[in-house]
Design a protein around this nucleic acid. Structure first.
Lengths: 202, 202
DNA sequence: ATTATTGTTGAATAAATATTCAATCAATAA
DNA sequence: TTATTGATTGAATATTTATTCAACAATAAT
């Protein structure tokens, strides 16, 4: 018979991981259409044909990456909500940990970028669009709930919570995009400046 | 001889305008690579071949649009700087007029989106990249100077002005992107929430 | 009306790129 | 060893799409 099955699976996963890693980088920085299968293969360090041994198509890779990106983001959001912290502190932690990701974890930065640019694109596979439509608002809702809780105890300013959640994520997304092209000069803005939008000052 | 020259020029400009308009919409929402010449022609309402009567190539259209987008944005920034208003008010006006653009002027919204997504892309023509690299920071510098002036007179908080300018534009860009995909549900967040990042509260 | 000029089309053509595939290779269980 | 299985390659092939082009149309000066 052939080779050991479990080891095989491991190697297969490793290969897939390599492909995901290269594809994430390229899709996030160049977009789906501009990224060639040849680019992914080259970046991952093997032949074009092999990509098709592991994935059905370019779209397939993209769709799976989108799934993974939202899974990560949304599970982080879910975790955040259940932390035992004052509400304003949760916003602070969220900002700080995402900024830390942007600066220190290339993959996290690329994941944010992929979400920001893919969500805004009208030229992604239907299945990717479906996933985005289903999952996009979850982090908004989490932040909104945290804001409303903070408004109840007076720590967060009494403005429309939907607006505030929108400001929260727009700012984060904007910073993610900036960071993508200017990693060299990117410095995280002080969290207190960011929090000023939410803090209740009376 | 042929037809009247000036009229011709006018008609030619009008045609070009049509192409620009369709291309702006498509490039901004789908990206350069996903936008087909056929799409542009169809949207503008004429044949594929005609596009090449007015433009050298797809890249050519894109590059000119990028030029126009930065010209608009940067001249608006320049104007803003010379308004005779308190410094914090300038930030307020900037936010309000850009938000007004997002909501009421499709082209303004698309221009912001084009800038946000193209700037972040590593797969645009060299000439477009050049223009972006030359012009990208101008609005940041304008806002930064306004912030520093406001810090001098005490109306704006004394944090690093570069950070604050980054927050300013990141938030605007984030909102632009959100608006692009969710025009139906987009509501402009109150300017006071936005301004809280900059206002000196003592 | 005629003619010169530019506008316009849609069908080639040329390039680029996704996908398939036949052949070879590497590992290992027998 | 050797037979079997899956991995890997690189060269087809198929598809998509940018670009060119030959033909026809419309316009307006003569």
């Amino acid at each position: 018979m052939g080779r050991n099955k479990e080891l095989n699976e491991l190697m297969k996963d490793e290969r897939k991981q390599q492909i995901f890693s290269s594809a994430l980088k390229l899709f996030a920085t160049r977009g789906l259409a501009s990224t060639k299968i040849a680019d992914i293969a080259q970046d991952a360090g093997f032949s074009q044909g092999l990509v098709y041994h592991y994935f059905k198509s370019k779209d397939d890779i993209f769709i799976q990456l989108i799934k993974m990106a939202f899974t990560q983001l949304n599970s982080a959001a879910k975790q955040l909500e259940h932390f035992d912290l004052p509400h304003l502190q949760k916003l602070k932690i969220a900002y700080e940990s995402m900024m830390d990701g942007l600066v220190h974890h290339e993959d996290a930065a690329l994941t944010h970028l992929l979400i920001a640019t893919s969500s805004a694109s009208e030229s992604i596979p239907d299945e990717a669009r479906l996933i985005i439509d289903e999952q996009y608002f979850f982090p908004y809702e989490v932040i909104r709930r945290i804001i409303e809780a903070g408004q109840t105890d007076g720590s967060i300013v009494s403005k429309n919570s939907r607006d505030l959640a929108l400001l929260f994520w727009s700012t984060i997304r904007g910073l993610s995009i900036y960071r993508a092209t200017h990693h060299d000069t990117f410095v995280v803005p002080e969290v207190e400046s960011f929090l000023a939008m939410f803090r209740n000052k009376e």
